[in-house]
Amino acid sequence: MLRLYGKIFKTGVITEKVRKPGRQGAEPDEFVQTGEQLRQIVDRRFRGSLAIRQVDAGSCNGCELEIHAINNAYYDVERFGVHFVASPRHADILMVTGPVSRHMEEALRRTWEATPEPKWVIAVGDCGACGGEFGVSYASCGAVSNVIPVDLAIPGCPPTPLALLQGLLTLCGRL
């Protein structure tokens, strides 16, 4: 047990802090600055808590890996008031990865219907945005917007954690 605490103290807080520009690479700084702007909006418009329900509607699981990453200790998106919830009934935003497979079409629609108003939908990844590598076929409806209304698309294959956060900021900035 002592070793465990020792490791925790030795690791310290690795969550990236606001640094003066120019030190230690651009991305982390940009991530935090984007996050800070997002937090101000979340504080103002969502009383400090923005709830996201992630729905995989047919993704190759690449986007899921990066959505997970924004929760790791480096990015720690929760500090900006953003958190992922287990039910669409608790969500403000649906973050949908695609392409929407035809076999997930109805499940996605029902998830969207189960989300209380006001609600917003973000299509994540090239596939969610436009069908990507899979497009429209006998098995795929392509873009998320072909199935439910989409407020914002975050392209990328998959989008990086920074792109995901910037997308959230863009959407919330419009509200």
């Binding site: 699981n61 690449g62 890996l65 497979s101 076999h103 997930m104 590598e133 098995a139």
Partner: peptide, 27 residues
């Protein structure tokens, strides 16, 4: 549930296109 027709849409691709698709069978 996530059947995307990968085998079908592979048909007619060129080698580069297939490599890209194969890279998305499981991300």
């Amino acid at each position: 549930y996530v059947h995307k027709g990968i085998e079908k849409i592979a048909e007619g691709r060129d080698p580069q296109g297939l490599a890209r698709l194969a890279g998305r069978v499981s991300g």
